[in-house]
Amino acid sequence: MTAFATAQGAAERATWVWELRSVNGRGRDVKLRLPEDIDGLEARVREAVNARITRGNVSIGLRLTRDAGEGALAVDPARLDAVLDALDAVQERAFDKGVTLGQPTAADVLAQRGVLIATQAESADLAEPLFADFQTALTALLTMREGEGQRLHAVLTQQVNEIEALTVRAADMARARPDAVKAQMTAALARVMEDATGVDPDRVAQELALIAVKSDITEEIDRLRAHVQAARELLANGGPCGRKLDFLTQEFNREANTLCSKAQDVDLTGVGLALKAVIDQMREQVQNVE
């Protein structure tokens, strides 16, 4: 489901803004963009999201701005060494290629990710208020997702109603078919037997019986009714049901395809095509359901 939420806060020497986005997805994919120096924050954020969201692509970003103050920032020696070694390797490679590069300034080096870090005391002080504001943003995101879910519930319920109504129409047509099919087959048999010489009547009867069985849509009607009941139960029970509904729309479509192939009747084929159209619309909407 699509949703967006923000939350912002401030501490003695820092301000921050959380941004949370959610879009449709077949599974759950959580992407985080968080400062690396806040111990444990990423794990807590990911755990909180996984506990409350089961489907969708979720992007979470934290913009943290620290005021320059005494003891607020420190240099990570290991990271600094790695950056300097990388710069030295670039300079040597450029020299070998005959390329002259300008010397990086101290500001260029400090701008590299991870060189400047917050002191442990400051990071520890920020962890709790940051996570508290994240939970506020997550709740707002879930509220927006739930609002969309309620709207989708109404849409899906209407589509299930349409499928049920079309299934009833198909069943009514199926009940009216035997007499018409019998008359058609009797007339066809009479025409065949007039010109048939040495045809085994038992063999003809077997072929006619096979045709009658292949055109029977009773099983398809029964399964469509069962799928309608299953869809209603999923929608009524609440909770995550997107994947189950996705599977159910595939089963709906399978039965509608079989019904169309067995129809041998313009009106019944029209009902089957209408079923396929509604099922396809439902399948598109189900992709938005958690």
Rank of each mutant, 00 (worst) to 15 (best):
G102I: 00
P104N: 05
G69H: 13
A82N: 05
G98A: 06
L101R: 07
D81T: 10
D96T: 13
A121Q: 12
T65G: 09
V83H: 03
E92N: 08
V58K: 03
R79A: 02
R79E: 01
A51W: 07
R55Q: 03
K97M: 15
G56E: 09
A72G: 12
V109H: 00
A107G: 04
T54A: 12
R55D: 04
A121Y: 00
V109G: 01
A82K: 03
A89N: 09
I117V: 14
G69E: 11
T100A: 12
D96N: 14
V49R: 08
Q103T: 14
V115R: 05
T105S: 15
I117E: 11
R44Y: 07
D88H: 08
V99F: 02
G69N: 12
R55A: 01
A51L: 13
A51Y: 08
R79Q: 06
L80Y: 00
R93G: 12
D88K: 10
I53P: 01
G56N: 09
Q120W: 02
A111P: 04
P129F: 00
A124Q: 11
L126C: 07
L84V: 13
A118M: 09
A121S: 14
R93P: 04
Q103F: 02
Q120H: 09
Q91R: 13
D88Y: 01
A68L: 13
V115D: 05
R63N: 15
A118Q: 08
A107V: 01
I60C: 12
A94E: 03
A121T: 14
A51N: 14
L110R: 01
G56R: 06
E92T: 11
L87M: 13
L87I: 13
A124I: 01
G69Q: 13
R113N: 09
N50F: 03
T100R: 12
A121I: 05
A121H: 09
I117C: 10
R63V: 11
G102Y: 00
V83N: 04
R52G: 09
F95N: 15
L62M: 05
